[in-house]
C-alpha cells in the first residue's frame, strides 16, 4: 500500500510580537488553521498559533486581514 502524501499546500508565518490579538485571522481563515494562544506576548496580547497547520492552503487570507502586518500565509511549491 502506497499512502498518498497529504503534504500541506501552504504554511503560515506569524510574528508574535507585532500581534495585537484582534482575532481577524482566526475568524476569517477559510480552513480554520489558526487559534488564539493561551500565552501572552510581551505587550499582553494573545497571539494566534497554527493549531492545524496541515489544513493550511496558503491562501494568505489571514495575511490580507491582519491590521498589524504580523501574519503571512505562503504556498509550498509542491510539485504535482
Amino acid at each position: 500500500m502506497v499512502e498518498v502524501s497529504r503534504k500541506p499546500k501552504g504554511f503560515v508565518t506569524i510574528n508574535q510580537e507585532r500581534c495585537k490579538g484582534c482575532g481577524f485571522c482566526v475568524e476569517f481563515c477559510p480552513t480554520n488553521v489558526l487559534q488564539l494562544s493561551q500565552e501572552y506576548n510581551s505587550h499582553g496580547y494573545h497571539y494566534p498559533i497554527a493549531q492545524a497547520p496541515e489544513k493550511c492552503s496558503g491562501c494568505d487570507q489571514c495575511g490580507a486581514y491582519c491590521p498589524d502586518f504580523a501574519v503571512l500565509g505562503s504556498r509550498n511549491n509542491n510539485k504535482k
Binding site: 503534504k7 504554511f11 498559533i49 497554527a50 496541515e54 493550511c56 504580523a70
Partner: peptide
C-alpha cells in the same frame, strides 16, 4: 505531515 511546518516565527514575515 506537519513536522516540516513552522507554527510560529519570530522573524519578520511580510513582503
Amino acid at each position: 505531515p506537519t513536522e516540516s511546518i513552522p507554527a510560529t516565527e519570530e522573524a519578520a514575515c511580510t513582503h
